[in-house]
C-alpha cells in the first residue's frame, strides 16, 4: 500500500519513537493519521498497519472498535461534531445539534448524499468554558449559536 511522502515520513518517525520491539505503540497514531488521508480505515490499511507494527490484522481491528475517532466508513468532507455533554447542554448544545441535523437534512452519524457533510453528536471535547462547541474535522468553533453555525455551514458549502 502506498501513502503520501508526508504520511510515510510520519510513519517512520512514529515507528522510531518507541522502545525497540514496541512498534505496536505506533498503531493508533498511524491509523488516525492514515484515516485523515484516506477518509476511513480500510481493510487494506488494517493489513498494512498490522504488517508494519508486527501484529495480526485482528489485533488492529479489535483496537479500532474501541476508539470513537477511528471509523471504518468514510465521513463527509466536513465532519461536523456537536458536543451535547453537560457544559454544552447547559448552553443549549442539544438544540444546536438538532438545528445542525435539520440544516443538513441528516441524522446522527449520517452523511449528506453529496458526501460533503456528516454529523455526529459527540462527548465532551474540552471546550466547556466556550460552550456550546462544535468541531469541524479538527477545527474548534466556540460559543456557537444556530446563526453562527448556519453561516459556517454555508461558507463550507461554497468552498466545495
Amino acid at each position: 500500500m502506498t501513502f503520501s511522502p508526508q504520511l510515510e515520513a510520519r510513519f517512520a518517525t512514529l515507528l522510531a519513537s518507541y522502545p525497540p520491539g514496541r512498534e505496536r505503540s505506533a498503531m493508533i497514531p498511524m491509523l488516525l493519521y492514515a484515516q485523515d488521508e484516506l477518509g476511513s480505515v480500510t481493510d487494506e490499511l488494517i493489513a498494512e498497519v498490522a504488517r508494519r507494527t508486527g501484529v495480526t490484522p485482528l489485533q488492529v481491528d479489535e483496537v479500532i472498535s474501541y476508539y470513537t475517532m477511528l471509523r471504518r466508513k468514510p465521513a463527509g468532507k466536513y465532519h461536523v461534531q456537536v458536543c451535547t455533554n453537560v457544559s454544552c447542554l447547559l448552553r443549549d448544545g442539544d438544540r444546536l445539534f438538532e438545528h445542525a441535523c435539520q440544516k443538513l437534512g441528516i441524522e446522527n452519524h449520517g452523511v449528506t448524499a453529496d458526501g460533503q457533510f456528516s454529523i455526529e453528536e459527540v462527548e465532551c471535547m474540552g471546550a466547556c468554558s466556550w460552550a456550546p462547541a462544535v468541531q469541524v474535522n479538527y477545527e474548534f468553533h466556540h460559543d456557537v449559536t444556530p446563526d453562527k453555525l448556519d453561516r459556517l455551514l454555508d461558507e463550507l458549502k461554497e468552498k466545495r
Partner: peptide, 26 residues
C-alpha cells in the same frame, strides 16, 4: 515524544492510558 489518542474518555485513566500508549484498547 507527542502521542495522539483516538477518542476515548477512559484513556484519561492512568492505567488505561498506558495500555493505549502500547497500541491496545484502553
Amino acid at each position: 515524544y507527542a502521542h495522539t489518542g483516538a477518542g476515548s474518555y477512559e484513556c484519561g485513566e492512568e492505567s488505561a492510558l498506558l495500555e493505549s500508549l502500547e497500541g491496545k484498547r484502553g
